[in-house]
Amino acid sequence: MSAALEAHVVVDRGGFRLDATLEVAAGEIVAVMGPSGAGKSTLLGALAGLVRPTSGRIRVGDRTVDEPGARRAHVPPMRRGVVLLGQEPRLFPHLTAAQNVAFSLRARGIGRAQARAEASAWLDRVRLAELGTARPAALSGGQQQRVALARALAAAPSIVLLDEPLTSLDAETAADVRTLLVAELAASGTTAVLVTHDAVDAVALAARLVVLEDGRVTQVGATRDVLSVPATRFAAALAGLDRLEGVASGGAFVHDVSGLVLQADDAASVAAAAVDGTPLVAVLPPSAVRIDAADGATADAGAGSDAWRARVVRLEATVGGVRVVTTPVDADGRSAGAQPGPRVDAASVSAEVPVAAMAELALAPGDRVVLRIDRRHVRLLRR
Rank of each mutant, 00 (worst) to 15 (best):
D367N: 11
Q144A: 14
A7E: 07
G320V: 03
P285N: 02
R90S: 06
R372H: 10
R108M: 14
V211S: 07
T326G: 09
E245R: 12
V247K: 09
A155Q: 05
G304N: 10
T190F: 09
P157A: 00
V193H: 03
V322A: 00
A98L: 09
S140D: 14
L212E: 02
V370H: 08
G366Y: 15
V203D: 06
V126M: 11
D292E: 12
A317M: 05
L5A: 09
A121V: 10
E360K: 08
A121S: 11
L380S: 01
A175D: 13
A252R: 15
R375M: 06
G27N: 02
T218Q: 14
R146Y: 10
A202L: 07
A248R: 06
T218N: 03
L238E: 00
G142Y: 12
D266G: 12
T298V: 15
S188V: 07
V200L: 14
D66W: 11
G39A: 13
L371G: 06
G337T: 01
V312F: 13
I110K: 06
H377N: 10
R59F: 07
R151L: 05
A26Y: 06
R376F: 08
S228R: 09
R125F: 04
S269L: 12
Q145W: 03
V195T: 15
E316L: 13
A274L: 11
V329Y: 06
D332C: 01
P136C: 13
V182W: 09
A156W: 03
V11P: 09
A121P: 01
V275M: 07
A293V: 15
A38K: 05
L5V: 12
R216G: 08
G39Y: 04
D266H: 13
R208W: 13
T179N: 14
P77W: 04
Q219E: 15
T190Q: 09
D198Y: 08
G321Y: 02
R151N: 05
L260M: 10
R125D: 07
A183Y: 06
